[in-house]
Each structure stands twice: as C-alpha cells, then as structure tokens.
C-alpha cells in the first residue's frame, strides 16, 4: 500500500468536545451514538427518503443524497462555535469532501475525525481530462469524458478526495495489467 493512503482509527466520540456533529454517507449512524452524548447531531443519507431534512427526534437528520448533505454542511459549520467535534463516516471520497468543507469552515484537523465505512469504491480523477469518476469498484476504468482507459493508482489526493487514474498502458505501451476489484 502506498504511503499516502490515509489510515483511519475506529469510530469513537471525542469526550473533550462540547458538541458533536456526525455526518455519514450511509443511511444509519453507528449504533447507539445518539444516546452516548447530550449534544450530538447526526446527518445521514436516505435515498428517496422524506426529502425535507428536519431535525428529527434523537437528532438524526436524513438527507436525500450526499450532494445535498455536503451542500448544507458549510452553512451549518459557519454557524457553529468553538468546542464542536466533527466526524465523517462513509466512503473515502465522502469523508474527505466533508473534511475539506470542515477545514474551509475553520476546523483544525484535530477537531475532525474520519472513518471509512460502506462499499470499497473509489472516486477516480482522470489525470488526462480532469474528470471525476464516482463509485469505481475496479482498478481499470474507462473515462466517460475523454474515453481513456485508466489504471487506478494507489495514490490518493486528500484535496480532491480522489485516486489518480492514468492511461492504463502509460508505463509500457500495449502492456495492460490485470483488472482487480479493490480490497482496500
């Protein structure tokens, strides 16, 4: 595994925080966390769910998509005050998108914790035409924009929250590696 792959700790709430905001790209948070602290709010994604995200009992707020959730996140963090701990749980692309929104809002990395969960799919950045390809499960993928056959390198950009995709035979023309499903 390449050195730039982030390492994630198991999910745990940080007792030094005065309030906790947990966002997840999954449809449910880790079991029991709503009851673990007083001041905790959880944002989830329920596809085709109720649609209007209201603060429900237990502080769980379902969004229709990760897009909707992330679009609201910056506004929400802009209103938050010191003492908040921020957690993101889900795909690597989602948690690093959330991380980057948190940093722009002024959070320090020590106030953010990231945890990977859900299917082992990657967001891939086509280094030839800059297209982002979401939910890629295999290490060879065709770019939908420039049609390049891309090899997904084990090289993760935290800024783009994506893995680097480079023309599949870039090293030796004509030599195509075997396709493999991601196991990490």
């Amino acid at each position: 595994m390449s050195k730039n792959r982030p390492v994630y700790e198991p999910f745990a709430l940080e007792p030094s925080g005065r309030a906790h905001l947990v966002v997840t790209s999954l449809d449910a948070p880790p079991e029991g966390i709503e009851d673990s602290f007083d001041n905790i709010e959880v944002w989830t994604v329920k596809h085709n769910g109720p649609g209007v995200p209201v603060l429900a009992a237990g502080g769980v707020r379902p969004f229709r998509s990760t897009t909707e959730l992330l679009a609201q996140l910056g506004h929400r963090l802009g209103r938050e005050t010191a003492g908040l701990r921020f957690y993101a749980i889900g795909s690597e692309a989602f948690i690093w998108d959330a991380y980057n929104i948190g940093i722009v809002a002024g959070l320090h990395p020590s106030e953010i914790s990231l945890h990977r969960a859900g299917p082992l799919v990657r967001r891939v950045y086509c280094s030839h035409c800059r297209t982002m390809i979401e939910g890629v499960p295999v290490n060879i993928v065709s770019c939908p924009s420039c049609e390049a056959a891309l090899f997904v390198r084990d090289h993760f950009s935290r800024r783009l929250a994506a893995f680097m995709g480079v023309k599949v035979d870039a090293e030796v023309p004509g030599e195509i590696p075997a396709a493999e499903v991601f196991t990490s």
Binding site: R18, L77, A82, G106
Partner: peptide, 9 residues
Amino acid sequence: LLKRQKLDT
C-alpha cells in the same frame, strides 16, 4: 466569551 467564538477563530 470562549463558547461564542466561531470555528475559524
């Protein structure tokens, strides 16, 4: 005072 500070402070 410390409680009301924004995250970017």
